[in-house]
């Protein structure tokens, strides 16, 4: 299994293995979903909520392991309930972090209890924390795909009202847009996206797919549609490249994904902002 510098033969070799096939399939769905939902997370300044939801999901997953159910069901249940609770308890941005943190601490306490009650070995818990993408079954892939389709369809329906209420909540509310309901829908989107993304990067590294690609994209593009496409592209690039590297090197996928995304972030934040290579292009396009 050596790297051959011939990309085609390398990829053909990788695709021979079913675990790699599953990893790429699930990783692709997760990257697309995380890139899209992540854009709204960044726009709504809800990255702490996304972070908290993934950790709440950890408690759910630990509970599922305790009751011998697939962790993803525990994740979906806990993040769904936790996300709705956050949206209902603090519909407005003010003081939101305090409410979220309070719910988060309680849920993590439950997680600690579940782990201590569970007498078996803790590999499953470890994989929830850091991802288990190389151990994804074909039924996991199907579930991921189904969840991904539900998320994409929902975003497709709520796209414009959600974008408007994320950008200008007061005017959206005055215009009769159901901002409160959209807040709940948004949290449920984050909940489902988080639950499936945990398989790839785990609870602790969720930011690398849910927040950082979108944050980079927001620096690069100033039209929402373009920014979402860039965000998805970055998440896909990091996931694919991460899997490719992890196939050849004995280090975890999560490490590669976070490193790729972080490098891009540094590049955009400190290099791109200084030089702005597209400035000339922008100046000419502004005349139209």
């Amino acid at each position: 299994m050596a790297f051959s510098f011939n990309l085609i033969t390398d990829l053909l070799e990788i695709f021979q293995y079913q675990f790699m096939q599953h990893a790429i399939e699930a990783g692709t769905v997760v990257a697309i979903v995380a890139g899209i939902v992540g854009y709204f997370v960044v726009l709504r300044r809800s990255s702490f909520a996304a972070h908290a939801l993934s950790h709440i999901g950890f408690a759910g997953a630990a509970g599922a392991v305790l009751f011998a159910v697939s962790p993803v069901y525990g994740l979906l249940l806990f993040t769904g309930v936790g996300g709705s609770a956050m949206a209902v308890l603090s519909p407005r941005a003010a003081n939101r972090d305090v409410h979220i943190g309070t719910v988060l601490a309680f849920m993590l306490g439950l997680g600690v209890l579940f782990i201590s009650l569970y007498a078996g070995n803790l590999t499953q818990t470890y994989s929830i924390l850091f991802g288990q993408i190389l151990g994804i079954s074909s039924s996991d892939v199907l579930l991921t795909l189904a969840a991904g389709i539900v998320i994409l369809a929902t975003v497709g329906v709520v796209y414009r009202p959600l974008l408007f209420s994320s950008l200008d909540e007061d005017v959206a509310e005055a215009k009769g847009i159901p901002t409160f309901l959209l807040g709940i829908v948004f949290m449920l989107l984050v909940a489902v996206a988080t639950s499936i993304a945990v398989q790839v990067v785990g609870v602790l590294l969720i930011f690398s797919l849910m927040v950082t690609p979108a944050a980079i994209a927001q620096q690069l593009a100033k039209r929402p549609q373009t920014a979402i496409i860039v965000s998805v592209a970055i998440a896909l690039l990091a996931t694919w490249l991460g899997l490719f590297l992890a196939y050849y090197e004995p280090y975890p996928v999560g490490f590669f994904i976070t490193t790729i995304v972080f490098s891009l972030y540094l590049l955009v934040r400190f290099v791109y902002r200084r030089i702005r290579p597209l400035r000339v292009f922008r100046a000419t396009s502004e005349i139209t």
Binding site: V158, Y159, R160, P161, L163, D168, G176, I177, K222
Partner: peptide, 13 residues
């Protein structure tokens, strides 16, 4: 984009 949304933001899709 903001002004656009003020016009069409209440429509779905």
């Amino acid at each position: 984009e903001l002004v656009r949304l003020a016009f069409s933001g209440k429509h779905w899709g």
